[in-house]
Amino acid sequence: MNLLNLELNLFLVVVALYSISFIFYLVYLVFPQFLGRGRIASSVLTLGVIVHIMLIIIRIIQTRHPPFQTLYEALSWFSFSVVIAYLFVEWKRKVRLAGIFVTAIVIAASLYAILGLSSVPRPLPPALQSKWFAWHVIAAFSAYAAFVVAFCIEIAFLLFGSRARRYELTESAKKLFHRTSYNLILLGFPLLGYGIISGGAWAEEAWGVYWSWDPKETWSLITWLVYALYLHAKITPRWTTWKASVLVILGFICMIFTFLGVNWITQLLNIPSLHAF
C-alpha cells in the first residue's frame, strides 16, 4: 500500500469517527442522561483527532511541505483545527451542546475534500516557497477554527439555551455560552488580523504588491471588519443581546465565503484571483 492510499484510508477512518461522534452528540441532545452525558461522544471525537494527526503527518512526509497547499489539504487542516479548538473549549467549559454542530461542519468539510477534490500531492510553486507560508495559513485557520466554534456555541445557545435544566446548565453556565463565544472571537480576531497582514507582507515580498483588492483579500477584510463590528458592538449595551448573536452568525457566513465562496465566485464571474484554488 503506498502512502497516498494509506492516507485516504485514514481519512475515511477519521470521517467515520467524526460521524460516530456526531451520532453520540445527537443522542446526548435527545436523551442527555445516556452515553455518559456526552462524554463518549467527546472521547470518540478525541480518537478521531488522534487519527487525524497521523493523517497530517503522513501528508507532510509525502509532500515535504506544510499540508495546506491544495484545497484538499486546506479542508483537512480546517477540520482538524476546528475539532482541536472545540475539544479545548469543551474541556475548559464542560458544555457539550455545540458538539453536534461542530461535528456536522467538520464531516461536511472532510467529505468535500475526499469526494470532491484531488488528493494527489503537488510540489510547492515558487510563490509559496516562503517563510510566510506556514505562519500565514496557520494564523488564518486558527482564526477560522475559533470563529466556527463561536458560531456553533451561539447556535447551540439560541436553540437549547431555554432548556437549561434538561442539560443541567446553571445560570452561570448559560452566561458562559456568550462569554465563551466572545472570548473565541476575541482570540480569532487578532489571529485573522495577523493572517491578513502577514499575507500583505508576503505578497509585497513575492510580487511587490502588498494589497491588490483581490477577492480573497477583500473578503478576509470583510470578515475581519464584521468581527470588529461585533467586538465594538459588545461595548454598546443594546447590542449585547441577540443582535450580537446575529453578528456572530454573519461573521461565520462571511468566513465560509472567504474560505470557499470566493473560489466559486471567481470562477463563476471569471475574476482573476491569486488565491483561487
Binding site: 477583500t218 464584521v226 470588529a228
Partner: peptide, 12 residues
C-alpha cells in the same frame, strides 16, 4: 463599518 463592508461586497 456596515457601509465599508457593503462597498467591499460590491467591489468583489
Amino acid at each position: 463599518l456596515f457601509i465599508l463592508i457593503f462597498f467591499m461586497f460590491l467591489g468583489t
